[in-house]
């Protein structure tokens, strides 16, 4: 039932624009892989190559060991949920869900039973007779999900299915998608530009840039050990602190820390540090000054002026009292290997 998906050296041009530039990626059977990247990085094109709506200029798409690169979309056995609401307006919810089964000439009784089962699974058991225009956006995407799953596809493809929904519904639905994916064990490729979404639901996250893969790793690894400065910059928030390289170590904020990842050619570097890795200590003689504090419930994000620099630091919510704006603080980093990049503006 579950199948792996391989992108083998996919290349796709639109005029002079390179959408995919030799993409190599393997999605394991039963895995939820998030394709994450900024607009125009080629993630949707890659997904559409699996669905059969785009054909690569070079390379191959392999599903379950079969090369499906030139196979028409209707014979690929994939299920897709689109960004825009894609339910057939003339069919009610039950017939929408049963559409793929009807195409496959499944007898009416069986397809209605399967539609009811799927609607139960997505939490809309009583909505079968309604029409798409009678549903909210979140309900429509649930129905679209049920419709994609009804024919038991080998691969589920999700093309930013939550981007048109409001924040609360997004949160609920993404958890439901993950629950369903785990229950069914279906191989899933989830395209999103929302890093939080990708990190929270995926088994592995593939970060893309300009048609190429920058890093593919479990969410924690992408966040904690970004392979490239682009990934570090794109996933989460990153401080750039001036440092100096020497013998594989970097001196920053008066501390000497080991360096991981590629080393730039010049000794003057930017040390990349997450806000949660920046430590603040109230100190009347400290070099830092807390400028603003935005409370986020269990934590708060502080903006600290440090000479010409502004540094972001995440602190526990209860620390906002002793680290109120106007407080002078000492600034340090958590002692662990850091990622460095060439100083901005230098070669």
């Amino acid at each position: 039932m579950t199948a792996g998906v391989e992108f083998r050296g996919l290349r796709r041009m639109f005029g002079r624009t390179v959408a995919l530039d030799g993409l190599d990626l393997t999605v394991r059977p039963g895995e939820l892989m998030a394709l994450l990247g900024p607009s125009g990085c080629g993630k949707t094109t890659a997904l559409r190559c699996v669905a059969g709506f785009e054909h690569p200029d070079e390379g191959a798409v392999v599903v379950d060991g079969e090369d499906v690169t030139r196979r028409p979309a209707n014979r690929r056995d994939t299920g897709m949920v689109f960004q825009s609401y894609s339910l057939f307006p003339n069919l009610n919810v039950r017939d929408n869900v049963a559409f793929g089964l009807r195409v496959r000439k499944v007898p009416a009784a069986r397809r209605h039973a399967r539609a009811a089962e799927l609607l139960e699974l997505v939490g809309l058991p009583t909505h079968g007779e309604r029409y798409p225009h009678e549903l909210s956006g979140g309900q429509q995407q649930r129905v679209a999900l049920a419709r994609a799953l009804a024919p038991e596809p080998r691969v589920l493809l999700l093309d930013e299915p939550l981007s048109a929904l409001d924040a609360k519904v997004r949160l609920t639905l993404r958890e439901e998608i993950r629950r369903l994916q785990l229950d069914l064990g279906i191989t899933t490729v989830f395209v999103t530009h929302d890093q939080e979404e990708a990190l929270s639901v995926a088994d592995r996250v593939a970060v893309m840039r300009e048609g190429r893969l920058e890093q593919c790793a479990p969410p924690a690894e992408v966040y904690d050990r970004p392979a490239t400065p682009f990934v570090a910059e794109f996933v989460g928030t990153m401080n750039h602190l001036p440092g100096r390289l020497s013998s594989g170590e970097v001196t920053v904020l008066g501390m000497t820390l080991p360096v991981e990842g590629p080393l730039p050619a010049t000794p003057e570097v930017d040390v990349l540090a997450r806000p949660e890795a920046v430590l603040l200590t109230p100190d009347p003689d400290g070099e830092g000054l807390v400028v603003t504090s935005s409370f986020r419930g269990s934590s708060a994000r502080l903006r600290v002026r440090l000479g010409d620099l502004e540094v972001l630091s995440d602190v526990p919510g209860h620390d906002t009292v002793r680290l109120a704006p106007g407080t002078r603080v000492g600034v340090g980093l958590v002692r662990r290997p850091v990622l460095v990049a060439g100083r901005a503006g230098e070669s």
Binding site: G52, F53, T78, F82, S86, A148, L157
Partner: peptide, 30 residues
Amino acid sequence: IDVRTLVEAARGLGASWPYVLLRVLVPNLR
């Protein structure tokens, strides 16, 4: 109507081109 999305949704679910035309597009263009 969003012709492209409806066509792709139907094709992805296994529908042939004549099926897409007669069962998806024509009813929505009635």
